[in-house]
Design a protein around this nucleic acid. Structure first.
Lengths: 223, 223
DNA sequence: TGGTCGCTCATTGTATGCAGAGGTTCTGCG
DNA sequence: CGCAGAACCTCTGCATACAATGAGCGACCA
């Protein structure tokens, strides 16, 4: 590649390793729907698209694969994961196990600053809801749940759960319009539980939230 | 590299992608203690050690990093993860959330063949216990738990939980001698619950098993 | 003597090149 | 008209080469 000009102006200029930039960008493209489920990912194309060589792209693909965003078959290429109804239910089962745990841990270790940050995310989400900005809403939903896991202080859990939340965002986009108001009411309940440092309550709020999201998904899936 | 003889006879000969072979081998080296926690991983050295180029090593390292076996800091290298007591507790918290779920799913979908396979693993483990073969015992323990997750049929869960189980194996090695008999009694209970297709019972057996393992870990950690 | 600057080397980051697997298409034969 | 097979062509897998950063060390100056 005539890299000197191109790469330095696109991605290579930053000091983050290109693999990380590429991974972030690929996640964005997948979550935003610009890369559709089932679509094949060709290393050359992605490399050219992003202005880098195939190597960072390949490394990013290993990460995305481990996170479940893409599926790689040896010598046959990589494809954007498509979530069947069954796989969506699988995801909800895991969320039902992990979100209550995350909520409980967050309730036990959150300080006022963390609670305020959660409330701030909720405010922004309300704004986005009013504006009908579904993309921002999906991102904020992801931010909220990710932040709950971060607050909890269990890094191992956060490492697993944050990609899970991002993966769930893909589903959220499809039922966000109908669910947004309920969803954020539930979030407020969770914040209160965390503010009160009530682990049991936070756990059950998170559980109910996921159950509601699953019910909503089932409804929209059968529509 | 004087690869011609070495690589073709060691790793390159197989039809599995080298990145997978390397990842498997690195996991084995870490779990077996040949790569100690905190030890730095230098791409060149590993590549030479395994008779491959740096590229498959780098890709394998991204996977291991996502699985939590190593920690990578940009431009500063990769290190074998060390599990502090705190991190071990984090891991147990996640196991407490996921193992009961996996056990319940396994109970709901296991057939006679799967139950027999679990029993067979348990038999081999009893043998290994009698022989005092702790390495084999650790592997069998990992196999048992991994297989439970596989039986459950939730691929997303299995993808998360199996690396988790492998990571827990690292801990198991340190308290295996003391715990082995209890552990396998508990496993038998879990098999019975799965055979009986009793989800609730399987869930509580798995939960008790993890609680016992955690208690054992705490005891050995304070000794 | 202690600290800081700069050099050097070890190592990571990125690009490019080449070989082989897999898919596809076109052709020839039944 | 359909199918088998062979040539082609695209893409992945792996290796090598080059660039650039960071760590360690020594010299020089205060």
């Amino acid at each position: 590649m005539s890299s000197s000009s191109v790469s330095s102006h696109t991605l290579g200029a930053t000091h983050l390793p290109l693999r990380d930039v590429v991974a972030t960008e690929l996640r964005r493209l997948i979550l935003g729907g610009e890369l559709a489920p089932g679509e094949r990912l060709i290393e050359d194309r992605l490399a050219e698209l992003l202005g880098v060589s195939r190597n960072p792209v390949r490394e990013a693909m290993r990460v995305l694969s481990a996170e479940g965003f893409i599926e790689v078959t040896a010598r046959r290429g990589a494809f954007v994961s498509s979530m069947s109804a069954r796989e969506a239910m699988n995801l909800f089962d895991v969320r039902l196990a992990l979100e209550p745990l995350g909520a409980r841990l967050a309730a036990l270790s959150a300080g006022p600053a963390q609670v305020a940050e959660l409330a701030a995310i909720l405010d922004r989400a309300r704004l986005a809801t009013d504006e009908g900005n579904l993309d921002a809403l999906a991102d904020l939903n992801t931010d909220f749940h990710s932040y709950v896991f971060e607050i909890g202080g269990n890094n191992y859990l956060a490492g697993i759960a944050i990609p899970m939340v991002k993966r769930a965002q893909w589903l959220f986009r499809h039922s966000a319009a109908a669910r947004a108001p309920h969803s954020w009411t539930e979030h407020r309940g969770l914040i209160e539980a965390i503010r009160a440092a009530d682990g049991e309550f936070a756990e059950s709020e998170a559980r109910n939230h996921v159950l509601a999201a699953r019910a909503s998904f089932l409804r929209s899936a059968t529509d």
